[in-house]
Amino acid sequence: MVLLPSRPPLFLLFLASLLLLSSTARAHMIELAAGKKECFFEDLHAEDKMTVTYQVGGGGHLDIDFWLKDPNSKIIYNQHRNPTGTFTFTSAIDGRYQYCFSNEMSTVSPKTVSFNVHGVIYVPDDGQTAPIEREIRALADSLQDVKDEQEYIVVRERVHRNTAESTNSRVKYWSIFQGAALMLVCAWQVYYLKAFFEVKRVI
């Protein structure tokens, strides 16, 4: 006689809750030329949740403009000249939402922007959701936050490495310039002292 478990296995609950959660995530990296902008679109339903995180990885002062519009072209979030940002919102209406990154404030420097978009499709809680499913949903949100933080750290490490390499290069060339200038000054002093102590004879 085989006894069947009275409750479904834990991994089945985990799989079912992930299917109910319907979470999506995408990572992107774009190059924005000076004076240009780039926009993206997301089709959302009411009560859907979406998060956009971004980080400027290189170019100029490491700043970018960012804004997000609802389907009625109303700006619901706006940031000017920030190196990084995170915005989470819950859609109020069905439609296509637009978010843009702009480098229009720059006339010379292109910018490298790394950004993530992840969202959760709204699933109503009818009161029958198991406590473990709620915990798994919360865990999934926490894992996404950790992932965003890791990607932020990776981009910051790249920025600091580029800054260190640039500083090292400037120090090297400045040292070469100082050495050349010192040699020229020494040569001029020797020549000047030699000319100063030279005895001029009138024939």
Rank of each mutant, 00 (worst) to 15 (best):
M1Y: 11
V2K: 10
L4D: 07
R7Q: 10
P8H: 09
P9V: 08
L10A: 14
L10K: 13
L15T: 06
S17P: 01
L19C: 06
L19I: 13
L19N: 08
S23R: 12
A25N: 03
A27F: 04
H28S: 14
I30T: 11
I30A: 06
A33Q: 12
A33D: 08
A34P: 01
K37I: 01
C39Q: 12
F41N: 05
E42M: 08
E42T: 12
H45A: 12
E47P: 00
D48R: 04
M50E: 07
T51M: 01
T53C: 08
T53M: 03
Q55K: 09
Q55H: 14
G57F: 06
G57Q: 04
H61T: 12
D63H: 07
D63Q: 14
D65M: 04
D65R: 04
D65I: 08
P71H: 01
N72Q: 10
N78E: 15
H80A: 12
R81Q: 15
R81K: 15
P83D: 14
P83R: 15
P83S: 15
P83C: 13
G85T: 11
T86H: 04
T86N: 08
F87S: 06
T88W: 01
I93F: 06
I93W: 00
D94Y: 03
D94Q: 12
Y97G: 05
Y97R: 06
Y99W: 12
F101T: 08
F101G: 07
S102T: 05
M105H: 15
T107G: 02
P110A: 02
P110M: 02
T112M: 06
T112R: 10
T112H: 09
V113Y: 00
S114N: 03
N116R: 06
G119R: 00
V120G: 00
V120E: 10
V120H: 01
V123D: 05
G127C: 04
Q128Y: 10
A130E: 15
A130Q: 12
P131R: 08
P131K: 09
P131E: 15
R134N: 09
R134A: 05
E135A: 14
I136N: 06
L139R: 10
L139D: 07
D141L: 07
D141I: 04
S142D: 10
S142C: 00
D145T: 14
V146P: 00
K147S: 12
K147W: 02
K147R: 14
Q150V: 15
Q150T: 13
E151F: 08
I153R: 13
V154E: 14
V155H: 01
R156Q: 11
R156A: 02
R158G: 09
V159Q: 02
V159A: 03
R161E: 11
N162F: 01
T163F: 14
E165D: 12
S166N: 11
S166G: 07
R170M: 11
Y173P: 01
W174A: 15
Q178L: 15
A180Y: 06
A180C: 11
A181S: 14
L184K: 06
V185G: 04
Y192D: 05
K194R: 14
A195P: 00
F196G: 00
K200S: 03
R201V: 03
R201C: 03
V202C: 09
V202H: 12
